[in-house]
């Protein structure tokens, strides 16, 4: 039981914030699923809440304007932003980098 708890604690906590989706140019939900699938259980993704501390925030905009508000959330390592399907690989790379540093 103790071991499981420790492993759980090690997981990177990523808060996800979507823009409001007035006219997204791609499927933002599917993009998140792809990123989640890639990391499986190495990163704990959850929708960002104000009273939670995150290691990193992932801000998913639907277009170049990327107008999602996120300054209200707490994150130790700041935020990663994406606004196009083409950014999925870049986001994965950045998150891998953070995982590498935090291990």
């Amino acid at each position: 039981m103790k071991i499981i708890t420790e492993r759980f604690d090690l997981k990177l906590k990523c808060g996800v914030r979507f823009c409001g989706g007035c006219n997204p140019r791609y499927d933002r939900g599917r993009a998140l699923e792809k990123i989640k699938d890639y990391f499986k259980d190495r990163i704990e993704f959850s929708y960002a809440k104000e009273d939670v501390d995150y290691d990193i925030l992932l801000v998913i905009g639907g277009c170049t304007n990327n107008c999602a508000s996120f300054s209200q959330f707490n994150s130790k390592l700041g935020s990663i932003k994406m606004w196009s399907e083409d950014h999925i690989d870049k986001v994965i790379e950045e998150l891998e980098g953070i995982l590498l540093k935090s291990n």
Binding site: V16, R17, F18, C19, G20
Partner: peptide, 11 residues
């Protein structure tokens, strides 16, 4: 819905 909350809600 988290995918629309940013537009649909405010403080």
């Amino acid at each position: 819905d988290p995918q629309y909350e940013d537009l649909m809600t405010a403080k």
